[in-house]
Nucleic acid binder design. Structure first.
Length: 357
DNA sequence: AACACGGGGTT
DNA sequence: AACCCAGTGTT
């Protein structure tokens, strides 16, 4: 007993709520199917959890459907071409996830016979699987009583216990509370229940305490500070960087693209050749000699830690053009959707601004 | 422990 | 336009 209710009371209140309100998601095995003895496919659980890192359910849904249609199993994914996987991931962000996804699939295929480890510790050893994801897969796919703590859980627990310590300092404290609340029965459903509650009821702003199954035990609510929790350390301002992107269109319609280095921003993704992105205006650095036009186009895009103002220069180039950087991709196989968002924006603003000849 | 790493949503 | 959200890997 602690704070007026037993550790099991939270799960006891949350599981019936989940049984009624569990969202129907492409990767989720609902409470009814689980009760009938079905088990989730660990591959689908893993894939969804990687995609859901730092990313909303709404953004993930279509990507998950395309990935599972193209690669229905971890062995199928392990055999995919790097470029094909990166192209399918384009637009979802945090591209290191896609590189680690492929690494992980290949380790599972080659070192584990295509079968995911079924323990938190085993999962934790795989590329791209950290503390949260290892616990989530162990709980959801293998029904192990792992303490699953993501941002939603941090918020729910901080409010439930009125934890006023700011993040990230509060993490160890919240983890301890999360561990104590994790039940031995139906831990997979419980983990999804807390995260669903955080996503749909105990929201960052304007939480719907009136319909919350935990309202009776919520100390944050009792103290009138629920909506202010969790407190967070102030974040620093983003600087603005500038750069130039060079879009070259060959006579036959082919476009000049380069694959970015694996390390760093947009690593491993296709992009337009260009300058570095720096706070001072960069010197011009065209990837080939051409009559570069400046139609005064600018793309604005915000990354995790800086704003970018990207100037877009255009050129039509002859069939025999020899680029110093990048390679020409035939128009027929070039899909703007296979570019990261900032690069797709550059293509979009260029439409209608191409020089006549 | 601090930093790098996207994109989308809301206000 | 400014603000919000938030796991993993690297250093």
């Amino acid at each position: 007993m602690r704070d007026g209710f037993s550790d099991g009371a939270v799960a006891a209140a949350l599981l019936p709520w989940y049984d009624r309100h569990a969202r129907d998601l492409p990767w989720r095995m609902g409470p009814a199917a689980l009760a009938a003895g079905e088990r989730p496919d660990p591959y689908r659980v893993w894939l969804s959890e990687i995609m859901l890192q730092q990313t909303t359910v709404a953004a993930v849904k279509d990507y998950f459907q395309r990935f599972t249609a193209l690669w229905p199993s971890v062995t199928a994914l392990a055999a995919a071409e790097d470029a094909a996987v990166m192209a399918e991931w384009a637009g979802l962000g945090y591209y290191a996830r896609a590189r680690n996804l492929l690494k992980c699939a290949r380790v599972v295929a080659s070192d584990h016979g295509g079968v995911f480890p079924d323990t938190e510790d085993g999962l934790r050893q795989l590329p791209g699987i950290g503390p949260y994801t290892a616990a989530a897969i162990a709980a959801i796919a293998f029904d192990r009583p792992a303490a699953v703590m993501d941002g939603n859980v941090e918020r729910v627990v901080a409010r439930l216990f009125a934890v006023e310590t700011p993040l990230p300092t509060a993490k160890p404290e919240l983890r301890l509370l999360t561990e104590r609340l994790t039940p031995d029965t139906r831990p997979g459903c419980y983990a999804q229940a807390v995260m669903d509650l955080g996503a749909t009821v105990c929201t960052p702003r304007s939480p719907a305490c009136g319909i919350c199954p935990l309202v009776a035990m919520c100390r944050g609510r009792a103290q009138g500070i629920a909506a202010e929790l969790p407190r967070k350390a102030p974040k620093q301002a983003k600087p603005t960087r500038q750069g130039i992107a060079y879009l070259a269109l060959r006579t036959d319609g082919a476009v000049l693209l380069e694959t970015r280095p694996d390390k760093g921003l947009l690593g491993g993704m296709l992009g337009w050749p260009g300058t570095d992105w720096t706070e001072a205006p960069p010197p011009e650095a065209p990837p080939l000699a051409a009559d570069w036009h400046d139609p005064d186009l600018e793309v604005r895009h915000t990354f995790t830690h800086f704003h970018l103002r990207l100037r877009v220069l255009l050129a039509r180039v002859p069939q025999d053009a020899q680029p110093e950087r990048g390679s020409f991709h035939p128009r027929a196989s070039f899909r703007p959707a296979s570019l990261p968002t900032v690069m797709r924006k550059a293509w979009d603003v260029a439409a209608g601004a191409w020089p006549k000849d």
